[in-house]
Design a protein around this nucleic acid. Structure first.
Length: 566
RNA sequence: CGGGGUGUAGCUCAGCCAGGUUAGAGCGCGUGGUUUGGGACCACGAGGUCGGCGGUUCAAAUCCGCCCACCCCGACCA
């Protein structure tokens, strides 16, 4: 491609809206153009890279037994009503209606559609397992798009769905996908880690995320500093510090005028946070819930939401508290009625805690679980924090910002039961098919690659993803000998299958070199009067500082050799 | 949805506080010329509903109100 006819130009200055490195590079190099919040056009260079990413994904999916197909983006709303998932997605689903006022959904994901397809085409266990996949656009009205391509509202995604006869088959399919994902991220040159994850609105039992640690990430992962434990912050567990198992002491009320927060309470009574019981009121789908956790921990709202089986969950505000007749700051689980009580699993084994007395300006000492109160639900609802102990090995956990690039879900029979996607098994009994779902966001992957591979000057494309193999720079294009040599190289390189971005513009050397660095092709060839004096051309790798002179007659062969190596 | 911020040329920004000719600069763009190995120089030129609507005023980019868009943090999020 000739730069003189290339659509998309480089920017010297960084647009004000871009803060993260990948966002800045996307705009400065002319890879994408924003149309609205979270909605982007891909310009030719960005599109070429995206297609290369997709190709790598295709190859690995096919190698793992996948088969590509194409599903609609526009879905009748009835299929979403049938799965009951609309409320889970809530406002993130784009909905519209057609001319006859029939409801439609711009698909945010395709489990419903693929399950429906399965139902119509598969009847027997003999047809299983199946692994269809699609690479196509999906829509989610995210509350806050961010970071360029990190989180957008219209995005391209690869989703593969596995259909198996049983859990064992699902395990196998899932392992295949995990291997394929590792290959994909390796081939993209991206160091990723696999973390245990919460499955969120997609549902199902087990799920793992493939994440790339990076300060611009939209997500947080908890990673052990010693062993290989890693989990999404929503899911992360930790080993909770044990406390002395003193014998229960008698309940005792203490006056604590104006003391509400745990810190104040500890200072006032001269005790440590782990000796207190923190009470938080939540509204779970409109129902009040009393949440009890030891004062040295915080509530993980995802865990709590899962424990309560709630869709909407938020801390109750003062108005809601008043309406429910509850007192914030001095709440106690003792004698509480008509309110569901949830306790963190560290609470029952922590004796003699200090908690509220259910009246203003007073607390109770020596609260003991079982003796004084019980909870409907006792489970882990604590948030893992930096420095907490790893649940596997006890070493300190670290928290890192990450970009979530891929997510695999063991769905089980969640969708097949709701949508009646069954097969006839060997024993002649109709059974719901066991599903898995495996997604990769391609645009996000592109952003992650930019985050991982750039310097002050610009992009350094991994050779396998670069939009072009080589950047050919002609200096002094008013000189016929330069033009002639450059044009010949341009032709010869392309004839041998090497893709070339050819800077044939009338620009100064500085402009051309800076653009070449910004655009980041792996190899740069420079033709100038100076090199032609020596019947040669200058060759430089983007990743290195030094350049070498290569005889004109050997340039094509030399490039072929270099590209073969990479 | 809560908090913070920004909207003036394709990009970066000044002007606004303290209203007053024809709204500026740099980069980019066009034409001509001089340059030619790391974002050159000279001259001329094109390019603006000052985010929108309404109000105050003799007069609004500037003051007031409402709205919209975009960015950042949080909530949310396969």
């Amino acid at each position: 491609m000739r730069l003189s006819h290339h659509f998309g130009k480089t920017l010297r200055q960084v647009p004000a809206e871009a803060e993260t490195p990948s966002h800045q590079l996307l705009l400065r190099a002319g890879l994408v153009q924003q149309l609205a919040a979270g909605i982007y056009s891909y310009l030719p260079l960005g599109w070429r890279v995206l297609r290369k990413i997709e190709q790598i994904i295709r190859e690995e999916m096919d190698a793992a037994g996948g088969e590509e197909l194409m599903l609609p983006a526009l879905h009748p709303i009835e299929i979403w009503d049938a799965s009951g998932r609309l409320p889970l997605f809530g406002e993130t689903v784009f909905t519209l209606s057609d001319r006859r006022q029939r409801g439609l959904v711009l698909g945010p994901t395709h489990e419903e559609i693929i399950a429906d397809l399965f139902k119509r085409h598969v009847q027997s266990y003999r047809d299983l397992p199946l692994m269809p996949y699609q690479i196509q656009v999906k829509f989610r009205d995210e509350a806050r798009p961010r970071g360029g391509l990190i989180r957008v509202r219209e995005f391209t995604m690869k989703d593969l769905y596995s259909f198996d006869v049983d859990e064992e088959g699902l395990d196998e399919s899932c392992q295949k996908m995990i291997r394929a994902y590792k290959n994909i991220f390796d081939r993209c040159g991206l160091p990723t880690i696999v973390v245990e994850a919460d499955s969120g609105a997609i549902g199902g039992k087990d799920s793992w995320e493939f994440v790339f640690p990076c300060d611009s990430g939209e997500d947080e992962a908890v990673i052990c500093s010693a062993c290989d434990y890693a989990a999404n912050a929503e899911k992360a567990e930790f080993s909770k510090p044990a406390v002395p198992q003193d014998p229960p002491q008698p309940l005792e009320e203490v006056s604590t005028p104006g003391i509400k927060a745990i810190d104040d309470l500890c200072a006032f009574l001269g005790i440590a946070p782990w000796q207190t019981l923190k009470a938080v009121f939540y509204a779970a789908d409109g129902q009040p819930a009393f949440v009890a956790i030891r004062g040295d921990m915080e509530v993980n709202e995802t865990k709590l939401r899962n424990a309560l089986g709630a869709v909407d969950l938020h801390m109750m505000d003062n108005i809601e508290l008043e309406q429910a007749g509850l007192v914030a700051g001095y709440a106690s689980p003792v004698g509480l009625k008509r309110v569901k009580v949830v306790a963190d699993d560290a609470v029952p084994c922590s004796p003699n805690l200090v908690g509220g007395a259910n009246k203003p300006d007073a607390h109770q000492r020596n609260l003991n679980y079982d003796r004084d109160w019980t909870a409907e639900i006792v489970t882990d609802i604590a948030l893992a924090r930096e420095g907490d102990a790893c649940p596997r090995c006890g070493s300190p956990l670290t928290i890192r910002r990450v970009i979530e690039m891929g997510h695999v879900f063991k769905l089980g029979t969640l969708y097949s039961e709701k949508l009646d996607a069954t097969f006839l098994d060997r024993d002649g009994v109709a059974k719901p098919v066991v599903m898995g779902s495996y997604g990769i966001g391609t645009g996000r992957l592109l952003a992650a690659i930019l985050e991982a591979s750039h310097d002050e000057q610009g992009i350094i494309w991994p050779p396998q993803l670069a939009p072009y193999d080589t950047h050919l720079v002609a200096l002094s294009v008013d000189r016929p000998d330069v033009v002639q040599a450059s044009e010949r190289l341009y032709e010869e390189l392309q004839q041998t299958g090497i893709s070339v971005l050819y800077d044939d513009r009338e620009e100064s050397p500085g402009v051309k070199f800076n653009d070449a660095d910004l655009l980041g092709m792996p190899l740069r060839l420079t033709v100038s009067p100076r090199t032609l004096e020596k019947e040669s051309v200058e060759l430089k790798r983007r990743s290195e500082k030094e350049s070498t002179l290569v005889a004109l007659s050997e340039a094509v062969a030399r490039l072929q050799e270099l590209l073969k190596q990479s």
